[in-house]
Structures are given as C-alpha cells and as structure tokens.
C-alpha cells in the first residue's frame, strides 16, 4: 500500500505553519521540522536560479532513495509538500485538495492570523478525512 508519511505547509517566508506526521520512523521534533521546512524553502528558491531555461517555478518532485517529496506552491507563495512512499500516484491532486481545505478552513477563519501557525480544528478534521479518502481510493484500484 502506498502510504503518506508526512505533510508540511510553509508560509511565503519559509516558516513552518503546519506539520503533521502520519507514522514515519524516528519522528522529527519541532526544531528539526522547522529547520527542514526552511531548508526546503531555500532549496526551492535555489533550484529556480539554476534553471537552464526561463520560467522555472521550483522543485515539484524530489525522488529520494526511500521516499518521494511532492511540492505545490500556491500563487501567494505558500508551499504545501507531502512526503510519501516512492512511486505514490495522485499526490498533485491531493496537494490541490489540501490547498482547497486551507483556503476554506484556514484563510476564511476570522481568527486566523496570516503567516502564523495553523490551529484550526475543522481544518485538522477535514485534512484527516481527505488523506484517508485518498488512501481508500488507492486501495480500491
């Protein structure tokens, strides 16, 4: 079964605003997740500089030995990235769904301050569902 290991959301300046772990070994502590998130932000920016042609918008997929990292950057610079098993399909679609949930339950929440860590119960609930639904869809095929 293809599994999702973790999900990160970072704001436009590279700060981690949401991190959820779905069962990877040696879970990262808060400091490490913050560091990894801002490191990813810089790597994403550097990859644009090294592009051989115009119009590069940064890394979309990183294939490591033991995982795949799919990244989606919204127009406002917020980055969503998911760490999953190598070869997992439909991750772009999942990231779009997560983005939609973010706009609905986080941005439209009047108590949410922009660029600050996300603490919205409804977002958590719907996110858990979306990720499970995704798993079910993958299992069904």
């Amino acid at each position: 079964m293809a599994a999702i290991y973790s999900l990160y959301i970072i704001n436009k300046s590279g700060g981690l605003i949401f991190y959820k772990d779905y069962g990877s070994k040696g879970r990262m502590d808060t400091n490490d997740s913050l560091r990894v998130a801002s490191l990813w932000h810089s790597m994403h920016a550097i990859s644009q500089q090294l592009s051989p042609t115009l119009g590069c918008s940064g890394i979309e997929l990183l294939e490591a030995d033991t995982f795949d990292l799919h990244c989606f950057q919204s127009l406002t610079g917020t980055k969503f990235f998911v760490v999953c098993e190598p070869g997992t399909q439909h991750m772009e679609a999942l990231l779009k769904v997560v983005y939609e949930l973010y706009t609905d339950y986080v941005l439209k929440n009047p108590f949410y301050e922009m660029e600050m860590p996300i603490r919205c119960e409804l977002f958590d609930i719907n996110l858990t569902q979306a990720i499970q639904k995704d798993r079910v869809a993958l299992l069904g095929r």
């Binding site: 592009s51 590069c56 890394i59 294939e63």
Partner: peptide
C-alpha cells in the same frame, strides 16, 4: 536522492 524535477528541467 537520485533526481528532482521542476516545471522546466
């Protein structure tokens, strides 16, 4: 890692 992909390369 063995590769990464952006929209242009």
């Amino acid at each position: 890692f063995h590769s990464f992909r952006t929209n242009t390369y």
